[in-house]
Amino acid sequence: MKRSSNLFEGVIHGIFLILGLVTIACVLIISIYLIVSGIPAILEIGLVDFLFGTQWASTAAEPKYGILPFILTSIYGTLGAIALGVPVGVLAAVYLSKMASGPVKNTMGQMVSILAGIPSVVYGLVGMMVLVPGIRKLFQVPDGASLLAAIIVLAVMILPSIIKMSVTALEAVPKEYEDASLALGATPEETYFRVSIPAAKSGIAASVVLGVGRAIGEAMAVMMVAGNAPNMPDSLFQSVRFLTTAVASEMSYSGGLQRRALFSIALVLFIFIMLINALLNFFLKGEKKE
């Protein structure tokens, strides 16, 4: 009896182990595949020409494979989304965690969850139908599909993760800290800004990094609103292409060096996201220590 149950547990253990290994295998296979298929084009084009070339003309008679426009667009787009989304998200989190009364808080919290669940193509659609014409009219530019439109869409898309994580961090701030501040004659608002937010700073920082990760990896929504022309992002109203959309928009008809270069772009994006993940782990560890 004892023996067979041991055998049974062994089998179950084995199955679970295999399931775990499958996940790890996926990560490894994707990483290796990307590295193997991404490196040849970089070698062929030259690392400097590839990363710092300002022109992308993959289908021209004399093709150019410079991805600096995509890199800068992804960086600017993400930073812009953070600049817009973080203040809104953190302040909303302060409101939700500290000021809102029960029913308001519940309703708003659920709305935020719904916002997180909306498919990115829907964000893209709304951006295309509302935001793009809006920008065209408001700023009197020939085309509203631009870096600005992408930034705004991304800012909205990263709000839920910033709000949720910041609320969790703010709610974990011991009430004793806030009581101490109030008892010194500070107003509730002063208390939130000078005690609660600093005490929750590693959690809030982690939420920002998570938002960066989401923004830099987003493809569908930005493809629909950014205009998708491989320009250098010189102005907010420039039609631009992100790292993600660069891969997505040409993959279906590419071949030869062009196709290999798209894999190299994916590799660059992958490295960006790995760095962001490392940063996230760093902040989360910091929070645990405190």
Binding site: P174, E176, Y177, D179, A180, S181, L182, A183, L184, G185, A186, T187, V195, P198, A199, E290
Partner: peptide, 19 residues
């Protein structure tokens, strides 16, 4: 807030700010 400035408080559990 002015009242609490004049009438200070020390709590049961020491609660310095994390700064």
């Amino acid at each position: 807030n002015l009242l609490r400035k004049e009438v200070g408080m020390v709590f049961q559990k020491p609660n310095p700010f994390p700064m």
